[in-house]
Amino acid sequence: QITIKIADSLPVGHYVSQYFTKPWMEAVTKQTNGKVTFEYYPAEQLGKAKDMLALTQSGVADIAYVVPSFVPEKMPMSPVAELPLAEAIGCRGAEAYTRLVNRDSQLRKLDFDANRVRPLLVQSLPPYQIFTARKISSLKELEGMKIRVTGSAKAAVMQRVGAVPVQIPTPEVREALSRGTVDGMMFVYTSLFPYDLHPLVKSATTEVNFGGWISSYVISDRKWKSLPAGVQGAMTTLADKYNREGCEKVMADDLRDRERLVQGGVSLLRLSDAEKADFAQRTRTVAEQWAADLDKRGRPGSAVLKEYRDELAKN
């Protein structure tokens, strides 16, 4: 009989736990004939989001939900999958990232092996879009607008299109947007509704990659080694299954919520081919800059970026 403690920082009922965590836990229990059971601690019950990696390392939890961009000092390479690369749209970015972390790559060595953890479930969000409080009809109008972002890569993208990136804690975004502290924000469709932001939005972009989000449930090496081969096999096979299915569901939800927004009167900003080319031109250097910053500090940023791009090309 094996009991596994699994922790995350997601609110109860979050789509990640609905599409990935819970079905995976149930399937593992079922496939091992009840030999493996889980104690689930959602909603920061064991620690803040940025504590999750340390909690698996110390053994407080066996498996935890880790967001690399919350622990950049421990997982500096994974944000490669959050860069605004046009070819990483849809589930392709997550698939390439998952393949990389499941084989002997630089990315895996630096972000997982070095932290004595291994990835199981991997989640990505649909590409981030720009949502504005007043109607805009071209990307040019973003110039000078204050846009709420998270993280330096997304801030760089906003600077490249002439907008002003602003950092504000998530609980204050709604008021900031409604009172004009910011003019818009970089967000994903599915997150608008839980934060009740949809009534404030007038325009939304679509089908552009302004940046991404990558996260994963990791298990500590120590716990992993203590598991019988059969259980390990069940966990990885089922993780593959739910990674694929989960991502498809997330993308479907994205389209559904975009539709909901349009029905609520929000105007969709689709870029013309010329605008797309212009955007690609402007943001081309964001990924290179990200890699160069790491290279400068003696980390193989460029090598990991190449690794990721090569993997994307295999799709």
Partner: peptide
């Protein structure tokens, strides 16, 4: 309930993260 590992594990995360946030 969890021995020394749990004590250290919680102390090394909570002590800092529960107070060092912008919020």
């Amino acid at each position: 309930i969890g021995g020394w590992d749990s004590v250290i594990g919680i102390l090394q995360t909570t002590t800092l993260s529960s107070v060092s946030s912008y919020e």
